[in-house]
Simulated assay, not measured.
Amino acid sequence: MARSAYAQPASPVRTDRGTEYAVFEKITARMVQAENSPRGVGQKAAAIHDNRQLWALLAGDVATEGNALPPALRAQIFYLCEFTMIHSRKVLKEGASLAPLIDINTAMMRGLRGEAEAA
């Protein structure tokens, strides 16, 4: 009994940052697949829907007073949410590329991993 209490957990414990990264990774992979798939709008629409939900949650979180991120970063995340919503409509209505949305999510994943911007 004591051995099992101190044994490795069956699944690794994720931090909030790790959970956010995993969600971005999953949604971004779906957008990449949709961008390269001949299956049509349905796959893109589903990936965009999930991406919009993610960004809406992020915008809601950074808009709260209790958010501990620096104000400038909060504003940038909120702006990226607005851009994501606008560009998502362009993808669905005008057939625009998903590439800008994929690039934004990829940059967010780099930030969550603590990597410096390479730009």
Rank of each mutant, 00 (worst) to 15 (best):
R113G: 01
A63Q: 14
D16G: 12
G40I: 06
F83D: 06
M85P: 02
F83Y: 14
R74E: 00
C81K: 11
I86C: 07
P70I: 01
L101I: 11
A29I: 02
M31G: 04
K93L: 10
A46K: 07
A68L: 08
I104A: 11
R39M: 06
L80G: 08
D103Y: 01
F83A: 12
R52N: 15
A29L: 10
H87A: 04
E35I: 00
A45E: 12
Q33P: 00
V32Y: 03
E94G: 00
S37R: 07
G42Q: 09
A68Q: 11
A34E: 00
Q76A: 15
I27H: 10
Q76W: 02
F83G: 03
A46F: 07
G95Y: 05
T19Y: 12
S97W: 03
S4I: 15
R17T: 13
N67S: 02
I48G: 02
L54V: 03
T64A: 11
N105G: 08
A68G: 07
G42V: 10
E35V: 00
A119E: 06
Y21M: 07
M85H: 14
I102D: 03
A7E: 09
T15M: 04
A119H: 11
L58A: 09
M1W: 12
E35K: 07
G18C: 02
A34S: 05
R52K: 14
A10P: 05
E115W: 09
I86T: 15
A99Q: 14
A68T: 12
G66Y: 03
A118V: 09
T106S: 12
M108F: 12
E82F: 04
N67R: 06
S97V: 06
R74M: 02
A119D: 07
R113Y: 01
L54D: 01
A99E: 13
M108L: 13
L101V: 07
L54C: 05
A29H: 03
A5Y: 12
A118T: 11
L92S: 05
A2P: 03
P100T: 09
E94Q: 10
N51K: 01
D16A: 15
L112S: 06
S11K: 13
N36D: 06
A59K: 15
E117Q: 07
A59W: 05
N36T: 12
P70E: 03
S88R: 03
E117Y: 08
G114Q: 04
R113K: 15
K90S: 09
E25I: 01
N51L: 14
C81G: 14
Q43P: 04
G60V: 04
P100D: 02
N36C: 02
H87K: 12
I104Y: 01
M85Q: 15
G114W: 05
A119P: 04
G40F: 09
Q53F: 09
P100L: 02
A72H: 04
Q8C: 08
R30C: 05
L54S: 02
F83C: 08
T64R: 15
A118Q: 11
T15G: 04
E82Q: 13
Y21S: 07
A107F: 10
